[in-house]
Write a protein that binds this DNA or RNA. Structure first.
Lengths: 206, 206
DNA sequence: TGTACATCAGTGAACGCGCGTTCACTGATGTAC
DNA sequence: TGTACATCAGTGAACGCGCGTTCACTGATGTAC
């Protein structure tokens, strides 16, 4: 009874909730977060401005749903990286960055709290975020188990790795690295350089 | 002839350009970037909605000026940290974070490109950003000169240090760390933990 | 299988709002004589 | 020192716009008989 195929009467859409999330994601790609309005998403989905209210209580809820789907994509990429290179923290970081740069405005949305909700974020969104983060944690645990990663506090390692890659991603997305000497290198190399320091440390050895 | 003292006729303000930048900074603190409009800034400065156009060609220019002042403040904090602890990269990072958390919405503005301008950012804003960044670079140079920081590529060290602290700052500002176990620690400790890894490295030693 | 009907996902017009920006104006200022 | 005047930083009303949201409605759907 649910899960109607997309092709129906054109009056009843059949899968509008999903279509709105996809339309929103597409608009993020093409017009950006600042110009994303409920009305534009409705238009992109070829539906009247009031139609989204059948599926989302308000604009925040739609944005939260788009963001949630973003976290699922991110999670999928991290899991793929983990499957390909278990315990390889640098590979996970590169996969993370690849997502952020493939969908920069979705990524920005995912980390812009006030736009996603007023007050507490919906539980399902929080859960999606936790899931993606857990993938990072799992990589670290694997790395520690195999002896490649030192047995430091895993929460701290996860935070550090996350902050580093998030920082690089945001700096690139916001254009802060569009200048000498950083604009001479592809993003993956910029991250690699940061990862090398994070792996080796910057202190002088005795 | 320029630099009129603030108290004049109340019709001619005397120093409106500055007053607008301050009013904007105050509003960022109290209502946030999303609700910052030219009209609100004018109102906060007790001036008509058209008055700002005597000093800024458009809204972007006012925001860029606010942002520029933000970079000057950040630069001042970094220089103070450097004077107090030359060559201490961790101290610089803490000073950086302190600024970001003291003025979170100004900080967010400073790194939100599309809001600051369309197309190229104004030269003076870019220069202010470079200046702040150079303070970090100088700290690294000092640290290398005194032998505390390894003689790696300084550009890479600067990028890594910047990305790490920017990442931590953004994650905190956007509420991504408002959950277990990270919400149990003050921001400075979270950063310290990340800095420890960045300093020592996470690899296992032979 | 065929028909009557309740459901509810959509429509489209309308609302009030705050926005960035413009325009003709006003009146305080500092300068020239 | 005193007055006429050009300058230009402000005013306040107005513009057109797109926004989020509401409402009474319409018509396709699936179900009960």
């Amino acid at each position: 009874m649910p899960k109607r195929p997309a092709r129906k009467s054109a009056y009843h859409h059949g899968d509008l909730r999903n279509a709105l999330i996809q339309a929103g994601t597409r608009l993020l790609r093409h017009v950006g977060l600042d110009d994303l309005s409920l009305r534009r998403v409705a238009k992109e989905a070829k539906v009247s401005p009031a139609a989204p209210y059948r599926h989302f209580p308000d604009k925040h809820a739609l944005l939260a749903a788009i963001s949630e789907r973003g976290f699922h994509s991110l999670h999928a990429r991290l899991e793929a990286a983990r499957a390909a290179s278990p315990g390889d923290l640098d590979a996970s970081g590169q996969a993370y960055l690849a997502f952020a740069l493939a969908e920069p405005e979705t990524y920005r949305l995912m980390f812009t709290k006030n736009v996603l909700c007023e007050g507490e974020p919906p539980e399902s969104l929080q859960e999606a975020g936790r899931q993606a983060f857990q993938s990072l944690v799992a990589t670290i645990a694997e790395g520690q188990a195999s002896g490649r990663i030192a047995r430091r506090d895993a929460d701290q390692l996860a935070l550090g790795a996350w902050a580093l890659v998030h920082g690089v991603a945001m700096l690139i997305i916001d254009g802060a690295l569009d200048r000498e000497p950083y604009n001479q290198l592809p993003p993956g190399h910029l991250l690699s350089a940061c990862q090398a320091i994070f792996r080796e440390g910057w202190r002088t050895l005795p």
